[in-house]
């Protein structure tokens, strides 16, 4: 094995999968990229747990207990952890629920919402409990790099990843930097 492939793991926490879609928007460059990388745990693979990886991409903020578990697993296994998109970086649109108490949100949806039948707040032990607030990932674990945007532009993923594959620090060009 002279050309060891770079291992990349990805995850969506309280995300919308839009950042993953924007990553796929690099289109045919994905084929070139795939010659140098292999995916570990990711929504794009069938691997259930994050194994030792070179780079972890995290989309979405942290909204429930399972998100915390997954995020810590990624931090423990990824040499470089990258917060991708507005939600991971500052909570994003889901963090607008921080304007309200969690109980208000649950009661509105499961008890008092329009068209609700058999009103009850789900409480099965299988379900991860929601956190009091939606948190940015860097309020839970240390993050190495941030890729802003909602979602980040496809080219910004390449600007982030290509230097990292060569062991260099990435640089996001000014025209690729936006928060919306």
């Amino acid at each position: 094995m002279t050309d060891q492939k770079i291992r990349i793991a990805t995850a969506s926490l309280a995300g919308c999968f839009g950042c993953h879609m924007s990553f796929l928007d690099i289109d045919e460059k994905l084929v070139q990229l795939n010659e140098r990388i292999e995916f570990n745990r990711s929504p794009l693979t069938d691997i259930k747990h994050c194994g030792p990886s070179d780079i972890g991409l995290i989309e979405g903020g942290v909204c429930n207990a399972d998100n915390v578990r997954v995020l810590r697993e990624f931090r423990a296994n990824c040499k470089v952890l990258i917060a991708v998109g507005a939600c991971a970086i500052n909570g994003g649109v889901p963090a607008m629920r921080n304007y309200f108490d969690l109980r208000e949100c649950l009661e509105e949806v499961y008890l008092h919402g329009t068209g609700v039948t058999n009103p009850q707040i789900p409480d099965d032990a299988e379900l991860p409990l929601l956190l009091d607030k939606v948190y940015p990932v860097q309020e839970v674990v240390r993050i190495d790099y941030f890729l802003p945007g909602c979602p980040p532009p496809a080219d910004a993923f390449l600007q982030m990843l290509m230097p990292l594959l060569d062991g260099k620090a990435p640089h996001i060009a000014n025209n690729q930097l936006h928060y919306d």
């Binding site: 917060a83 970086i89 500052n90 909570g91 963090a95 921080n98 304007y99 607030k133 940015p136 860097q138 309020e139 993050i143 790099y145 941030f146 890729l147 802003p148 996001i172 000014n174 930097l177 936006h178 928060y179 919306d180």
Partner: peptide, 21 residues
């Protein structure tokens, strides 16, 4: 404020959020 973030190359907010109401 947003344009200032772009101008200064701000990629993240660094500090914990206040989440004011």
């Amino acid at each position: 404020l947003q344009a200032m973030g772009y101008y200064l190359g701000m990629h993240e907010e660094h500090f914990h959020h206040f989440n004011p109401r």
